[in-house]
Amino acid sequence: MRIAAIVQARMGSTRLPGKVLRPLGGVPVIQWIYERLSKCRNLDQIVVATGESAADDEFAETLKRLGIPVFRGSEHDVLDRYYRAARAIRADAVVRITGDCPLIDPAVVDAVVARFNEGQPELRYVSNINPPTYPDGLDVEVFTIEALYQAWRQSEWASEREHVTPYMRNRPDLFPQDHIRCEKDYSHYRWTLDEERDWSFLTALVSLASDKGWEPREVSFPEWLSLIESHSDLTGRNEGILRNEGEMKSLAADRKVK
């Protein structure tokens, strides 16, 4: 089975425009994500799926200069972008990663993919988000190309098209699924990048790792935890932001699109 990670990312974030190219520790956020995913043992390919609008032209060119494979598709119908990217690279299964997760952990990704592989051929969807027990920013979902195709054909609501997996997640009868949990609930930690406050937290965290003599892009999930727990004041920088706020807003303004 050919398993590919598809990272959805574009320049037009409403809350933090251009965040994917912000230099975190001197390196663009998207490069963090690509390099960390490159350490996964259970992935055959990694591609960044971005939009086709002029706003993403510079981003696509930057990806090419960095040697990061890129696919361009629909700006707002992200489900369509995912399906066409998966078909283009001939993936049998897709790992969904979002472009706001610079601390995505290769060991966590491998664990979710391993659970998916163990459950074949029955399982069609596996994640670590139902319920969330990992920090926000370490979210991983994996699903078969057949499940993606079915969602692509049948999803009718704007929220389903924008957020890719709700059609699968909400229909376990159609998509046999499993979920992994962390040994302890760390879901109250926020390691994602959606707001300026998140940027303040991440830059301070990366700076602390560098001060310890660590190479930040190689720091593991347990090491980040130890660093944060010894500097508890850090988490106050981005407290109070709702997890999956974008998806909740989409649901509140949902409409049929097909």
Rank of each mutant, 00 (worst) to 15 (best):
S226I: 04
H231S: 11
A5S: 14
G236C: 01
W224C: 04
S74G: 04
E215Y: 05
Y189G: 10
G26Q: 07
R84P: 00
S220F: 00
S226Y: 01
D139S: 08
S53H: 09
R197G: 10
G67R: 11
M11I: 14
D100M: 03
H231W: 00
I97Y: 02
M11H: 14
L37Q: 11
P216I: 03
P166E: 05
H179M: 02
P176Y: 05
W224T: 03
V70E: 14
H179E: 07
L123W: 06
V164S: 00
D211E: 13
A60N: 09
H188M: 13
E229Q: 14
I3S: 03
Y134F: 15
Q120M: 13
D136L: 05
L79I: 08
A252L: 12
Q120P: 05
E146I: 00
R90W: 00
N117D: 01
Q45N: 10
D194Y: 11
F71S: 11
G213P: 06
R171W: 09
S13P: 02
N117V: 14
E195S: 09
C101L: 08
R96W: 01
W224P: 01
H76P: 01
F71D: 06
E75D: 15
D198S: 11
D105C: 06
Y167E: 08
I180Q: 01
F143D: 01
E223P: 03
T235L: 06
G51N: 04
K258H: 15
Y167Q: 02
A204G: 02
I241D: 00
E156G: 01
S207K: 13
T192H: 05
L251E: 12
L234A: 03
G26C: 07
E239N: 11
D211P: 00
L227W: 10
G137S: 13
R2A: 04
V70T: 12
